[in-house]
Design a protein around this nucleic acid. Sequence first.
RNA 1: GCCGAAGUAGCUCAGGGGCAGAGCAAUUCCAUGGUAAGGAAUAGGCCGUGGGUUCGAUUCCCACCUUCGGCUCCA
Length: 593
Amino acid sequence: MADFAKITGMDKEKLQNLRHSLAHLLAAAVLEIWPHAKRTIGPAVENGFYYDFDFSTEKHQSGPKNEDLHLIEEKMREMINGWDKFEKEDISVKDAKKMFSDNPYKLELIEEYGDQGLSIVKSGEFIDLCRGGHIESARDIKPNAFKLTHIAGAYWRGSEKNKMLTRIYGVAFETKKELDEYLWQQEEAKKRDHRKLGQELDLFFFSDLVGPGLPLWTVKGTVIRDELEKFAKETEAKWGYQRVATPHIAKSQLFETSGHLPYYKDDMYPGMELDDATYYLKAMNCPMTMALFSQKPHSYRELPLRLAEYGTVYRYERSGVLSGLLRVRGFTQNDAHIFCTEDQLENEFVQVMKLHEYYYRDVFGIKDYYVRLSLRDKSKKDKFGGNDEIWDKAESVIQSAIKKSGIPFQEAIGEASFYGPKADFQIKSVIDREETASTNQIDFIMPARFGLKYTGANGKEHPIVVIHRAPLGSHERFIGFLIEHYAGAFPLWLSPVQVAVANITDEQLGYAGEIVEKLRAEGIRVEWYNQNETIGKKIREAELQKVPYIAVIGEKETKAVSVAVRQRGEGDKGAMKLEKFIEKIKKEIKVKN
RNA sequence: GCCGAAGUAGCUCAGGGGCAGAGCAAUUCCAUGGUAAGGAAUAGGCCGUGGGUUCGAUUCCCACCUUCGGCUCCA
């Protein structure tokens, strides 16, 4: 995992210990108020801590509600005074079982970790089973530098087969100042949440009539989609890609051939039974492109063949995971499949990584991401197709290619797809949720299942290897991310409205209308603020809509055939001739910044 | 899917067993204005959907739908 956490004054381990100690304090406070609750575990996490409880044993009252957090916090502050040094002691399995005889969760942990040695931690009256990692004394906890934030459900030991527990989250820092700063940052982050900005800037929405996870793009949102797509098409054409188009549905045989159906059937929209077959909405484009490639024989001279498609796919994501544009059920991928020889594979993959660098670093200025290299878990053979020889080859090529590209990465064992290892570009949303922006895979398996071959210089047939790649991920997720990245203030080339024309009085309606027409004729996206309102009001509205340029038209401008230019966030830039303004805009659109 | 919370005008939200409220936006009128909100009037509602309790439900109860916070999942 990349470390997105801010470096604070306190050393990291000590801060983690402080947070873990607070988890114990939280448990102690909760047990004071809900004496029959069962505590389970409470680790430190990024920015804070949590503790999981089972309140189902609490007979007299229900578990905590959000409004009780305040109460628990007060209890914690009260209890700190009775706490002192954190003392750690080793304990035998027998004594531990006795001590926690009424707590099945602790007993399960004792059973599992007993042979590795157990210890307990004590402070004041409080004792908890614990592996350790505390600050020296509870006196180091500043009572005003932590805050309980929310209550949520969480499965015992992270498995949905287990009981759902109640998790209480808190945030904690060394000082109140750091806590306040963190809380302020969280508030600021909420302002750039793509769901909020999507509403305010009128970019997309969801309709109950259409269904959950199926975004509808407004006129303004569609401009961003189209610009992004146009840019990707142009760029990828230069990088040697050719475009194809495939249907949205296919017979079950296609997904059986690709191998997806047994693995992913539950995540696909259910099949449509027809006379000749069961048809499925595609949840991925690759089987279609494979079928397209298999249509005719291929010579080594055609390779590498890079086939790109903006393909719309549908996945039946579980209802609870849907989130704005970042997790949807229908989305359009910036997809492509590179069909190549084994010898070309590494270089092609390096090129794919370089394309990412161009997009992320050079064009969008995205810095806050990391690459997750997902490899197979050798002990879980049923999760991954093919044999060890093929996997070893694929993993060695991807590792070598990614090293050659010079892009830093982290390995994740067991995260590979069933048909191959992958290099994913991981980003974080403003609310700190990590998502995959781009996924890139090496695949020996699916081409083999489709029997894809090429004829080599020696006249013999050889197996094809495929790279799956989607640098811009999906329109939905990538635009969701871009909205947050730019805080809604898109660069000129992506802005739904590039110029707002605002006449000061009705006297200039004629001239302003001409300006609007001229800008439009130059291919500039313009919106005319011609309401009967003051210029101050129009400027405010255009600024709130984050329009990059406002062309103010008054009596002076009409006479001089000019526009008074106001730049987003920078204010009045003075008047300039219309031709000059158009030239400036067009130049800025071209350089994409 | 699971735990919890919330759904009232286009948006942000208040209210509460007996005629449905505000601000912003919209429309019209007045004002004709110089760089972040000029004034007035009008219109706008199955109070998420379906059941139930009640003389009466937007309000109370139940179910469902959607959204939000998490968990699990994420080709």
